[in-house]
Simulated scan of single mutants.
Amino acid sequence: MGAAMEFMNPLTFASDAALMAVAGGMCWVLAAVCLLMDRRRERLRSVDRLERVGFVPWTGLFLGLAIIGGGCLAMSLPVVLGNL
């Protein structure tokens, strides 16, 4: 349990810009997952298994998460680069 607490210390004492950069990076990771799931759905659709595809708006989720993540990273970039 001590190792988990030491892992959280940099995030606990991070600045708002660093936390926003982390949130933006997480949004981009989720956007990449949405992109992969959309490609998987298109591949299954071509195999003619429409009943197994399901309905999740992967393209819309990808676009929304990519824009939000890019905005968070762009807003935090000057402060994060200034601390280097």
Score class of each variant (00 low, 15 high):
C27N: 14
M37S: 07
A4F: 03
V47I: 12
G54D: 07
A3G: 06
G71H: 07
S15G: 04
L35I: 10
F7E: 08
V33R: 05
R39H: 14
A3S: 14
G54F: 10
F62S: 15
G64P: 03
G2K: 04
A66Y: 11
M20N: 09
W58V: 07
S76H: 06
P57A: 14
S15K: 07
A21V: 10
D48Q: 11
R52D: 09
A17D: 00
R52Q: 12
G54A: 12
L61N: 06
I68V: 15
A14F: 09
L65E: 01
R41A: 15
L84E: 03
C34H: 09
A18M: 12
A17P: 01
V22N: 04
L81I: 11
G64C: 14
V29K: 07
S46Q: 01
R40P: 02
D48K: 12
F62G: 15
G24T: 03
R43S: 09
A74S: 07
A66G: 11
W58Y: 14
L36A: 15
R45P: 00
F55M: 08
A21C: 12
L35P: 08
F55W: 13
I67T: 13
F62V: 13
R49I: 11
V79L: 04
D48H: 07
G25W: 05
C72S: 06
G2I: 02
L36E: 12
G82A: 01
G60F: 13
G64Q: 07
G54M: 09
E42D: 07
